[in-house]
Design a protein around this nucleic acid. Structure first.
Length: 422
RNA sequence: GGAGACGUCGCAUAGCCCGGUCGAGUGCGCCUCACUGCUAAUGAGGUAGACCCCUUAAAGGGUCUCGGGGGUUCAAAUCCCCCCGUCUCCGCCA
């Protein structure tokens, strides 16, 4: 949510941001109009209420006939207050609902455009030349089968399309990835945290996932729960309605959870393998910090992501995601995309978002800064999204016979240097 | 799943039966000041948030918040209803 005072004072900036995202700039004017009505309704209500408060006190002191007369007038006043309160409440609801429609302000540095208009910031590592190695790379589905690591057929049998089993070294690889990721994060000062995956609507709403992203969320209607699509949701909501001590900031959490995605609107996309699935595990960084530190924290998150991919010995590139593809909460987003040999393409494996005060305002997370309380900034970034990282490791580190070399960093966690055929 | 208790200003509690003098007492913690070589002790004062108006620099005025929502009433922490949460006991269970 954007500060209503900021919108009042800088409507053009907000309109420009909406336009840059390919979203409706006229919402700004609707918000401003609703805000006018809201404030007028508040003034009216509060004046009546003040009158009533004074009046009520005088009733307590009065006696006999005098009191009876006063009660008559009190009734009338009470009705007026009630009506004004109803108008106020309606105006506030409307104004709030409209304000929530606005996406976060764009960082002026973010490239403008749609999904394809990202800017490549850097390439790290070089894609392996399989021609030189003298063999055609197998894709992760085939490798997964040869190694007894991934069972897609049975995933489909039991749960349907986009489900899978990780078996044998596949399962071990997940544990190794998570262990390596979390222990690195803890060394870097993160607080490890395992989150709920079912959350109530306010948590979902607050993190900004019930807007245009709502289609991609599993919902348990009977119990009014959402299945989180990322632990960003329970991590952001962890401090919901709290006032944090600014001296304790930044608070850095490394969360681990399963993630659930409907992948609505992705029909036909990545239908093979485990690149795009309904359920996967992920370790996520989440940071609460002072707004003035957000840009630096964002860079730090990106740096940790790069270190992780380097440790996995995977070639990748970093992109500056374009305005139209940021989601409603991020002001700027960097993705790391790993080289996937059999697709001859870079594919997103991690993502780092700076949400400034947008989520914190929705979730009512503030800090005490001297005399003032004001919203904190929140940032999130992927440490490791398991299936896609497995894909990248298997495909990049495969040998001609289908065995796969284990990256050095993971060897202590796996107790092996190579995945053998089963 | 059954029975009961409870949810108050950082923490612990009072107030609820008998509605107005309660935005709310007390203790602890914390902050400021005083006193004292230092610390401790003692004394005095302070100690939530949101919003609106006015000015927009400060100050000031007002409204709301006693888990959440609704109702009764001129008036609700206090009475009534619903919801959420916590705890205790019993049963069941990873």
């Amino acid at each position: 949510m954007i500060d209503i005072k900021y919108i009042r004072e800088n409507p053009d900036v907000v309109r420009a941001s909406q336009r840059g995202r390919g979203e409706d700039p006229t919402i700004v004017d609707q918000v401003l109009a609703a805000d006018e009505i809201r404030r007028a309704a508040i003034v009216e209500f509060e004046a009546l209420r003040a009158e009533q408060n004074i009046f009520s006190k005088s009733v307590g002191a009065a006696k006999g006939d005098e009191k009876i007369g006063l009660l008559e007038r009190g009734k009338a006043l009470s009705a007026q207050v009630k009506a004004a309160d109803a108008r106020r409440s309606e105006a506030e609801t409307k104004s709030q609902a409209l304000t929530l429609l606005l996406s976060n302000l764009l960082d002026p540095a973010a490239p403008i455009g749609g999904e394809e208009d990202f800017v490549v910031l850097e390439h790290i590592g070089t894609p392996r030349d399989f021609t030189k190695d003298g063999f055609e790379p197998k894709d992760h589905v085939e490798l997964g089968k040869l190694l007894g690591a991934i069972d897609i057929e049975r995933g489909a049998k039991v749960s349907g399309a986009r489900f899978y089993y990780l078996t044998g070294v596949g399962a071990l690889l997940e544990f190794a990835l998570i262990n390596y990721a979390i222990s690195s994060a803890v060394k870097a000062g993160f607080i490890p945290i395992i989150t709920p995956v079912l959350v109530k609507p306010p948590a979902m709403e607050g993190t900004g996932f019930l807007g245009q992203a709502a289609e991609d969320i599993f919902r348990l209607e009977k119990d009014d729960f959402y299945l989180v699509g990322t632990s960003e949701v329970p991590l952001a909501a962890f401090h919901m309605d709290e006032i944090l001590n600014s001296e304790k900031l930044p608070l850095r959490y490394a969360g681990y959870s399963t993630c659930f995605r409907r992948e609505a609107g992705a029909h036909g996309k990545d239908t093979r393998g485990i690149i795009r699935v309904h359920q996967f595990d992920k370790a996520e960084m989440f940071i609460f910090c002072k707004p003035e530190d957000a840009v630096a924290e964002h860079q730090r998150i990106l740096q940790w992501e790069k270190e992780f991919l380097n440790a996995m010995e995977i070639p990748f590139r970093v992109i500056d995601v374009a305005s139209g593809d940021l989601g409603s909460s991020a002001t700027r987003k960097f993705d790391c995309e790993a080289w996937i040999p059999t697709q001859n393409a870079y594919r997103e494996v991690t993502s780092a978002s700076n949400c400034t005060e947008f989520q914190a305002r929705r979730l009512n997370i503030r800090m005490k800064d001297g005399q003032n309380t004001k919203p904190v900034a929140t940032l999130n970034g992927t440490l490791v999204a398991v299936p896609r990282t497995i894909v990248a490791i298997l495909e990049n580190h495969q040998n001609a016979d289908g065995t796969v070399n284990v990256p050095k960093a993971l060897q202590p966690f796996l107790g092996m240097t190579r995945f053998e055929l089963v």
